[in-house]
Design a binder for these strands. Structure first.
Lengths: 242, 242
DNA sequence: CGCCGAATTGACACGGTTCAATTGAGGTGG
DNA sequence: CCACCTCAATTGAACCGTGTCAATTCGGCG
């Protein structure tokens, strides 16, 4: 077993879990995922994930990535967070890059997706799952607009944390109450469109309100429901289990 | 010539102009647009554009529509504005509806899109144009996140107005300096995530700064470039002309 | 031990909201 | 033709959420 293969086996976990939550996958389809992921790469924090290729698509295998736009005067907005199991590609918005928020490992997802496009019928479960994942992505993006446009700092933060918890759970990372918490408050402030100082105070308030606990790189929510409620989360029905 | 056909001929204007700005369309393809638009409908302001059908897709022919989410306590965020020539469908986010911001006329776009899906090769120009329009839509959505997350009220407003000017121009409605302005400041405040009172003050400031003029339902920008600059607009290269 | 980035805290400034009242512009009925 | 109603736009004043600046503490890590 080569080192690459070892990495590959770890890597499929989150993607496999995520897709399985959207549609039932056959053993052959899971094998397809494992066999078609190539070009493993390690990205130190703060580096870009994509090079020039305009149609590049990579799968985040571990760590958190962010789609971020930097304005002329230095303000930075992170448009979306990509967790393990998520795909990233060049955003159509100018001055917008995909950067590693933590250390990240990724794979080239082009071969896998090309195969599917060429012969959709060969992996019907995958195809449906990817479609649903795409819809989910769009939903989270719309929700990010609501977060930034209509929620207070406190609600905004709770809303984001609830979303990240759900996504981690779906990717098989952590349970519904706990997830890794690898990012700084500065990064969080760039996601939420708040100042770093205010993020700090909001997090403290959330802790005082017993909505979250934060220690040793792990974020725990004693009651995910109360957290979601505080964040005005609009919950749809859970996806069809596999 | 029936009344419906008359409406149809007016309706293809914006869509035809928009798509033509993305790819060269053959005469047969334009005829396809005209022939395949059915189910014309008139929507009074403040009503929903879509009924139950989950896969419904409609083309806005005149007026402005908005994708809006209403929170439990009544706060409303308009996620995106749909102008003539834009398609609308059920958003994946819960509690989110497509509503008429002004009086709107629309068509059922399903037959047209179904034809294209069934036989993509029959209208290659259309296919490419629709793809580019889709990318453009995604870009505007990402930009809405930046607007709400990182820009001040003044910048936010300038940025939105610049975007609406560009989109109107692309749809062949008004030139690069002028566009119809059919919405109230309350609606604008729901797009920008600001209070109605503050929107009023920002608009006055923009007028004092000679960035916009507003009268008789028409918005004029003496210098679109300065407006875009004030809005921190990240301009990409213009689309390939037809 | 000493360094450095991240987290935390306090004081203050400011952008934006809220409340409340006024003005202006159609639209309708007497 | 005027009176009246309603909704949108406008204005003023007070309030408050959030940003800014600056200093301090904390926690790894060499």
């Amino acid at each position: 077993m080569t080192s690459t293969l070892k990495i590959g086996l770890q890597a499929v976990g989150p993607l496999e879990a995520k897709l399985s939550s959207f549609a039932r996958l056959g053993a052959d389809e899971i094998a397809l995922i494992r066999g078609r992921l190539t070009g493993p790469q390690a990205h130190p924090a703060r580096t870009e994930l994509l090079d020039g290729g305009n149609d590049e698509i990579r799968l985040v295998a571990s760590g958190w990535a962010g789609v971020s736009r930097v304005l002329a005067d230095g303000r930075r907005q992170i448009l979306r967070v990509a967790l393990p199991g998520d795909f990233v590609s060049h955003p159509p918005l100018i001055d917008t890059k995909v950067v590693a928020l933590t250390a990240v490992r990724s794979f080239d997802a082009k071969p896998l997706l090309n195969d599917l496009e060429r012969d959709p019928a060969s992996a019907p479960g995958m195809r449906e799952a990817l479609q649903r994942a795409q819809v989910d992505l769009q939903r989270d993006l719309l929700n990010q607009v609501v977060r930034l446009g209509s929620l207070t700092a406190y609600e905004r933060t709770a809303n984001l944390l609830a979303e990240l918890l759900r996504r981690h759970q779906r990717a098989g990372l952590g349970d519904s109450r706990r997830m890794p918490w690898p990012i700084t408050q500065e990064i969080l402030s760039d996601i939420l469109g708040l100042s770093i100082v205010h993020v700090n105070r909001v997090l403290q308030q959330l802790r005082r309100d017993k909505l979250i606990e934060l220690c040793a790189g792990v974020l725990a929510a004693p009651s995910p429901d109360r957290l979601a409620e505080a964040g005005m989360v609009a919950e749809g029905p859970p996806p069809r289990p596999a």
